[in-house]
Design a protein around this nucleic acid. Sequence first.
DNA 1: AATGAATGAGTCTTCATTCAT
DNA 2: CATGAATGAAGACTCATTCAT
Lengths: 210, 210, 210, 210
Amino acid sequence: MTRAKKTAKAAARPRTKPAEVRREELLDAAERLFREQGVAATSVDEIVVAAGVAKGTFYLHFEAKEKLLSALQQRFVASFHAALEAAMNRRRAADWQGRLHAWLAAAVDFYLDRTELHDIVFHEFRAEEGPRAKHENPIAEQLAELLGAGTRAGAWSVAVPHFSAIALFSALHGALDDALASSPSARKAVNRKQLTRALDAFFQRAVGLG
Amino acid sequence: MTRAKKTAKAAARPRTKPAEVRREELLDAAERLFREQGVAATSVDEIVVAAGVAKGTFYLHFEAKEKLLSALQQRFVASFHAALEAAMNRRRAADWQGRLHAWLAAAVDFYLDRTELHDIVFHEFRAEEGPRAKHENPIAEQLAELLGAGTRAGAWSVAVPHFSAIALFSALHGALDDALASSPSARKAVNRKQLTRALDAFFQRAVGLG
Amino acid sequence: MTRAKKTAKAAARPRTKPAEVRREELLDAAERLFREQGVAATSVDEIVVAAGVAKGTFYLHFEAKEKLLSALQQRFVASFHAALEAAMNRRRAADWQGRLHAWLAAAVDFYLDRTELHDIVFHEFRAEEGPRAKHENPIAEQLAELLGAGTRAGAWSVAVPHFSAIALFSALHGALDDALASSPSARKAVNRKQLTRALDAFFQRAVGLG
Amino acid sequence: MTRAKKTAKAAARPRTKPAEVRREELLDAAERLFREQGVAATSVDEIVVAAGVAKGTFYLHFEAKEKLLSALQQRFVASFHAALEAAMNRRRAADWQGRLHAWLAAAVDFYLDRTELHDIVFHEFRAEEGPRAKHENPIAEQLAELLGAGTRAGAWSVAVPHFSAIALFSALHGALDDALASSPSARKAVNRKQLTRALDAFFQRAVGLG
DNA sequence: AATGAATGAGTCTTCATTCAT
DNA sequence: CATGAATGAAGACTCATTCAT
């Protein structure tokens, strides 16, 4: 009840910003820190300092640290999804193989360019809504749709698109992780061409074109 | 709590045990707790209580909580590995398809019967020797060997066994996770038969037999 | 949340009200919340939401949360005082015993009907102007006047009215608290008749009529 | 998981003490601080500093700050009770009036010598076990027993000892509070003799000897 | 080998109050 | 009169690890 004291500090600050902007700034700051040090190792304190706001402001925009993580996850998935969609749409609608390849290539790129965030957002996140909440992986669903449509169009044959999509998405993920783990520090040195080619072959076989 | 009341309580306790035994007991206690509540939610305190030893004893056997987790991981992987090996060896050496199927079926069983531990040991574990330590996944390597040998024997054709093994292992893992996430609470109700069949088909295609 | 969406919502609201009205609304909202959850557990935020005003408006009417509590106290005491005055005045001026009894009976009723508020306003309030500010208890003073007047009129004998009033007021308060604490949940089940009779006897003796 | 750093500090400290001693030290430190600044204004941090232990040690002995307060309450009540018992027992068993007077005089003394603690322990304490937990006031019960025994012995007449005891205890409490509040800062200047005499008279009438 | 009292840095979260609009 | 985004000090509590016995 007695918190009246204050210390005059920074002079000119644009005190108030649209909620969306502030929220995004917080998200950006957190993303960077999470990338650099991991989620658990990053405190709310660090986030607010990085975002240039007071502690309380954080809780004005996120109920808890965990909710920020969820938001980050959604943001990441949404942009991943959009990138893949865009890549696919650069091919003709009827070019099924082209679309599949485009999807794959874009996924490899996106993943390799955002490794840490990907991990953070998908692995380091547990808790909330009990164990094993269906993440409702929209990326895999996107692939499933492609697989289903291609099958219906006679471009290839996939019996259970959802299943194959999940399996392929996981395979992709695993292969990339492995490649990353193998190239010690020169993370960027991973041979994308080669990797993409191998995955392409794997996908081809999976859709029955091997 | 007073120094004097020491003799009265629990007279006959085998105060000191061989290091290996104690270590194993700690591992067991931790495994159970991790399974029940997750790693982060389990404190060293709870572990020692469950193992019936004093706090300090923990640090006699493990440098840190993290090391216990590594040990648990190794223990898990080793038994997983052994189970798969055994399953494969129940087939004739020349029965490549049989061995592949046996490996897969055993993996599905092992995984579904030990879900939480698997997660804990593979997902919830980060840190230690920087990000992305090569997990040196022995399970995938085991599969890689099978794939390689089968290829050399002309049973199927897999160009880069290590790559395919990682991809298939990941696909397996992802498919199981997805299945588990979809069957709300009836976790055990996952249709193993059906799942195994789908995975079998996926594996077949992957090795070029689709 | 965006600046633009301001006109759409709740069209006709009487944005500005006379200070007194707003103040009273804030007091009402706070009273309800304090009753339901206690003072400490009620935040200014909750109060303004309940009163339907903005945070800043609170501080337009009260210097601090503490001041609101004081105001609530005064309001409570004033209405308590008025209720007792009214009850007494329903008896003839010369009917001293009747007036004393009326005072007592009204006090019991008022107290039992407003237990939580009473507590909040009298117990849960500390701080402000150092410890032990003279509460300037007007209720006790009202009783003191009655005791003094009755003594001067020869209806009974009380040597030091202020002292006896304080003591009797406290006794009343204590007895009611005890009765309330004893009747677990059926707070309203307290036997008012019986309690009033016992207090009556106690008061009689205290004024020398036992 | 990474809290290994340490700063060498104070050299010779008697690190470990019997739990009871530590607990008592914590209680003492808290009592002093509570007296000086009030319960709410005293942080656990301050308490541990005053007690010369680390933060964690506090929680080794008390589940929460609130529990410390309960413990303090019990300690206070117990010593209050004992002081009154001792005072009474300095009179002959048959000297009922003497015992009643002794109880009263001792209560006045104890109270006036420990005002702040008394307040803290009885007022500033709320919460826990729902509102209005029966404090099971042992002091009042002690008085009730005396009143009952005296009545049975024919020394005076009190119809419902428990009721009268509560009322008298409250009257005592209220009168002392009022006296304290009236003597602005010279708290110790309260005229004990006079106060005790007035209370004595009040008690006399209450037991039917007025 | 074993003990367990002690440590203390670190974490998240709350909330009364201010002030630019 | 009114708003509500922003503040930031303060608080309670946790827990991996150490070390004297």
